[in-house]
Simulated assay, not measured.
Amino acid sequence: MESKICLIRHGITEGNKNRLYYGHADIPLAAEGIDELKRLAESGLYPDGVNAEFYTTGLRRTEQTLELIYGRQKHESLEKLKELNFGSFEMKSHAELKDLEEYRIWKSDKLGNLPPPNGESLQAFYKRVIRGFDDLKERNALKAFSMRHKDDEALSIAVCHGGTISAILESIYPKVKDNFYKWIPDPGHGYILFMEDGKVADTEKF
């Protein structure tokens, strides 16, 4: 059975503009992000949401992004798809943190095993996100099965975060070298995953 999953990164926030570490901090979209999402929606960038199933991570910036693109839609929250929890480093910049010993130690960890104070490690983040993606794939497969006798194709639309999307794409294409930052889409953009029998057969960036 064929279906699609659409992963959309939320719009621009003050955290993006000021290059802050923020993941679980529940901040809203910046005015610039709202305007940009309206423009992108009007351009026809996004897939038609008729009969789609919608998901966010429950954070305000994902809730706002979903509503700006598709209007008020019934949806569920998939909290496992939240961005990395930066703990005590949340809402702080490199300039604010660079003289802290615990920050320097964390930044020097190339394997991603060390968490920031009161946060989670990159490896723990990867594992959490993949569990969340497995849940999303299962929901999409069930939707596809329920629609197997219809002409419409099952579509799941998840508004989440840049790091989350990158972790998912990295898991799909593990042989691509140095690909974590490669896969992060611009705010308001993302990927369509073409599914066959519950597995990703192809991807398309938008």
Rank of each mutant, 00 (worst) to 15 (best):
M1Q: 05
M1H: 05
I5C: 01
C6L: 08
I8K: 00
R9E: 02
G15L: 10
Y21V: 05
Y21L: 07
H24F: 15
D26M: 06
I27D: 04
L29A: 04
G33R: 11
K38Q: 12
R39Q: 06
P47F: 09
P47M: 04
G49Q: 05
V50F: 11
Y55R: 13
T56C: 12
L59T: 01
R61T: 06
E63K: 10
Q64K: 08
L66G: 09
I69R: 05
I69F: 05
Y70G: 00
K74P: 12
E79Q: 10
E79W: 04
K80G: 09
L81K: 10
K82A: 01
S88M: 10
M91P: 09
M91N: 06
M91Q: 14
K92Q: 10
S93F: 08
H94G: 04
E96F: 04
D109E: 03
G112L: 09
G112W: 12
P117T: 09
F125H: 13
R128W: 12
V129M: 03
R131L: 13
G132A: 03
G132D: 03
K137I: 00
R139F: 02
K143L: 15
K143D: 10
K143C: 09
A144N: 11
A144I: 05
F145N: 12
D151A: 15
E153Y: 02
L155R: 02
L155T: 09
L155G: 01
S156G: 06
S156T: 14
I157D: 00
C160D: 02
C160F: 03
H161N: 04
T164D: 05
I168F: 05
E170L: 15
Y173M: 12
P174I: 11
N179F: 10
N179L: 14
W183M: 06
P187E: 04
G188I: 00
H189A: 03
M195G: 03
E196I: 12
D197N: 15
